[in-house]
């Protein structure tokens, strides 16, 4: 079942005794949590809603709660958070979970209790009996990260529902700045709407001013500047990053890894690998590969490898000598631009 269907069912109070919500998209997970909480009338919330963090509390406590009858209401809501025992992970906190009891409960759930398991994981350990059983018996809802297109659509429709519109190019900019991460986009949408409260149109200026750029994005700009041999922009960006308190080694490491990806993509793309295969082989996010494929087209392999080696050289210098990182970067930029010219 997908999230929208679930929301609709919850709104009309059609509930099942057992739910497994799984996926890493935080925003959707929180939406689902809120929707569940709204099933229980507000005046009963104190008595009939229980939320248990499995990294802190033993499952037995939650089961005790689940097995009791609701107070003055139709349903009791029990939420299990972060059930790490369903995955292959081991937890350091050593909470003693009685999994047999949980198994037992899943086989015979209380009809008056809504038992919701919120698993913020990519997948469960399918060999475990409890995981198998849950997949079979519980209502499975996926909150996996949305693809770029779906995320766009989601944000767009949310904005429209609030009565706002994106100016031309605005959506693209937002997607780029947030790496198409739904949680980030939704968090920023609120601010953007506030700014555009007067004319209801979300423009690029607003996005530039309000949506923070993560280091990775800044570095992304830096990479583009380096590749375009735009000395001015590259040097300014580098300086800004240092002013923000970034470690030179860290910036350099991100640069190196980005160039490494570009090189890999460049080489592998000429061997005819598609975007999906590339992402799989390199173990990176498909969106990154997509962007890399776009930018790689403009550059020769020689340029890329030269830049890569130059950056490696900076790293060696940073570790071996006392030279000012900014100076090193400036020199690298100048030499790189000169060689190519």
């Amino acid at each position: 079942m997908d999230v929208t269907t679930l929301m609709q069912q919850l709104k009309t109070q059609q509930v099942q005794p057992l739910y497994l919500i799984m996926g890493t998209e935080n925003y959707l997970l929180e939406q689902v949590r809120r929707a569940f909480k709204q099933v229980i009338p507000a005046e009963q919330a104190a008595m009939n809603v229980g939320s248990y963090d499995m990294e802190q509390t033993p499952v037995a406590v939650a089961l005790d709660d689940a097995m009791s009858i609701p107070f003055f209401g139709d349903h009791r809501l029990v939420i299990l958070d972060k059930p790490f025992f369903l995955t292959g992970e081991t937890n350091k906190n050593k909470v003693d979970h009685d999994l047999d009891a949980l198994l037992n409960y899943v086989q015979h759930p209380e009809p008056t209790t809504i038992f919701v398991i919120l698993a913020p994981y990519e997948k469960l350990d399918g060999r475990k009996k409890i995981a198998k059983l849950l997949k079979k018996d519980a209502v499975n809802v996926s909150v996996a990260p949305l693809a770029e297109r779906d995320a766009r659509q989601y944000v767009e429709s949310q904005a429209q529902a609030d009565g706002y519109q994106f100016a031309a190019g605005g959506m693209d900019l937002l997607v780029r700045r947030t790496n198409a991460d739904l949680s980030l986009m939704m968090a920023n949408l609120g601010k953007l709407e506030l700014f555009a409260v007067a004319d209801k149109i979300i423009g690029q200026d607003a996005i530039n001013g309000l949506v923070p750029q993560s280091l990775a994005d800044n570095v992304f700009d830096l990479v583009t500047a380096v590749l375009k041999r735009n000395v001015k922009q590259a040097v300014t960006l580098y300086h800004d990053l240092l002013v923000l308190g970034e470690e030179p080694l860290r910036i350099n490491a991100v640069l190196v890894s980005q160039f490494r990806l570009l090189l890999q993509v460049k080489i592998l793309a000429t061997r005819g690998l598609s975007q999906g295969t590339l992402a799989g082989q390199l173990h990176v996010h498909p969106y990154r590969v997509k962007l890399a494929l776009q930018s790689v087209r403009q550059f020769s392999q020689q340029d890329l490898s030269r830049a890569f080696l130059g950056l490696i050289n900076i790293e060696a210098q940073l570790k071996q000598t006392q030279q000012d990182p900014e100076l090193l970067f400036n020199l690298f930029m100048l030499q790189f631009t000169n060689q190519a010219a």
Partner: peptide, 22 residues
């Protein structure tokens, strides 16, 4: 703060964040 990257992501996601520019 002057150094947002030192703040845990859990805090950041619970706030409305504004980045002041130079």
């Amino acid at each position: 703060t002057t150094e947002p990257h030192k703040i845990p992501a859990t805090i950041i996601s619970r706030t409305q964040r504004f980045d002041f520019k130079r």
